[in-house]
Design a protein around this nucleic acid. Structure first.
Lengths: 155, 155
DNA sequence: TATTGTTATACTCTATAACTATA
DNA sequence: TATAGTTATAGAGTATAACAATA
């Protein structure tokens, strides 16, 4: 009686609906920390890659450089990260977490871990891993089609 | 070397990236037909529920009524659907596909089927079905948490 | 009083072109 | 000339409040 049986056959439709739920839940979980999905992700990637440059960070997060600027500005203003000019290339910035940033990220990771458990409740750990693997495959299929826009069905 | 190993452990991160790929691919597949994801979905739901009202359509597609208005306007202007006043409730509109709408939807379904095959290439049919099931579960977990905003870990 | 569709509005995310300062 | 970061801007998608017509 839901009325969308046609669309329910597609992974993309389910993904849109599931992602909307994920986004709402993770943003609610991060809001008490003053973070949202994109600022949390940015902190996590900088923590994993100290000294990272903004353009490389944008590559990793698959977002455009201009859109990252405002995020980095926001995190710097909140004193969660620092921008330092490396002497060998004075065009760039090396990004690092501050102590406050590291502490907040630890709290955020706990909140996001709880969020992940909540949203994947009812799946076994094997099913959760299979979901993550399937999503990575879909992403990869999209990346391949970007390089080769022609249809390459299967020979 | 990707630099996002921390985030890759979360289904939500993979879902954001996979959905971006899905959206780009499906919109590219539908553009030659003058459609995009939301107009395609709207056509598909109206086809499945002839005489549907806009507020019920918004419920099914999990979107706000005001945002649907512009979509229905666009489809009506393109003469793909018709709005008819039902005599028993002259506030509402009964939505139906036109013949052109039915024909275009058939073409769009073929394009979206090809898109789905492309994006889930490398998954077995069982894995694809498991992906769809897992996404529905995540969506449902989000819906439950909306009703009960408190954390309900596991007893 | 409540509901259907609508208007207006605002906020986020995303995408592109063009600028500056360095290399 | 090319690259790193930036500015400005425009387009989607999404959310809420308030209104007119009808129930």
């Amino acid at each position: 009686m839901t009325g969308d049986a046609t669309l329910r056959r597609y992974a993309g439709y389910g993904m849109k609906r599931a992602f909307n739920a994920i986004q709402a839940d993770v943003n609610a979980a991060l809001a008490p920390l003053g973070l949202r999905m994109i600022t949390f992700s940015t902190l996590a990637v900088i923590a994993e890659n100290p000294g990272l440059r903004q353009s490389r960070l944008a590559d990793i997060l698959a977002m455009e450089r201009p859109n990252l600027v405002v995020v980095v500005d926001e995190l710097e203003r909140a004193e969660l990260i620092s921008r330092q000019r490396p002497p060998e290339d004075r065009r760039a910035y090396a990004l690092q977490l501050t102590l406050a940033g590291r502490r907040l990220l630890d709290k955020a990771l706990a909140a996001v871990n709880a969020h992940e458990r909540r949203m994947t409740a009812g799946l076994t750990e094997e099913e959760r891993q299979a979901l993550i693997r399937a999503l990575a495959r879909v992403e990869q299929n999209g990346r391949r089609d970007q390089d080769d826009p022609a249809e390459l069905s299967c020979p």
